[in-house]
């Protein structure tokens, strides 16, 4: 319609990445004692298109996760190359706990921004009376 949902779509893209990162962290923490398990995380790739001044997404890798069109950054899931312990497991539980908290906070921030943006739109519509 007439409304520009670009910012909202970008925030949605961010939420999608945070959801996945939370799941990866859950997987890492669950497998902290599994022999041979390698820690998983997102690698953020972001290219600043200098000419246009916008963020453009890199899509060279077939495993690349799609973001919403024209959104900020793309991300791929990679295995950590951190050296493993005796059983081959390389999960660092302190790092994972930190990621858990940090990711949760960033998720909540995006939710907040989303809500405020949506309410802003709604208010603008309600006030544009006669």
């Amino acid at each position: 319609m007439i409304i520009d949902y670009t910012t909202i779509d970008m925030l949605t893209g961010d939420l999608d990445l945070r959801v996945l990162r939370n799941e990866l962290t859950a997987s890492n923490i669950a497998n902290v004692d599994t022999p041979g398990y390698k820690s998983l995380d997102l690698e953020f790739t972001r290219i600043l298109d200098q000419a246009a001044g916008r963020l453009r997404m890199m899509t060279t890798d077939p495993r690349h996760l799609p973001g919403p069109a024209d959104s900020a950054s793309g991300a791929t899931v990679i295995e950590s190359t951190f050296p493993g312990r005796a059983d081959g497991n390389n999960v660092q539980i302190e790092d994972e706990m930190l990621k858990l908290t940090q990711n949760s906070i960033k998720y909540n921030v995006s939710i907040q921004l989303l809500t405020r943006k949506l309410n802003g739109l709604k208010n603008a519509l309600m006030d544009a009376r006669r």
């Binding site: 939370n22 859950a26 923490i29 539980i93 908290t101 998720y107 909540n108 939710i111």
Partner: peptide, 19 residues
């Protein structure tokens, strides 16, 4: 640690419902 993941996820879901 896994319990912490569950609790954290639960709070993220609660926040989601506040959109």
């Amino acid at each position: 640690a896994s319990m912490a993941v569950i609790l954290s996820t639960k709070s993220m879901i609660a926040k989601t419902l506040e959109i």
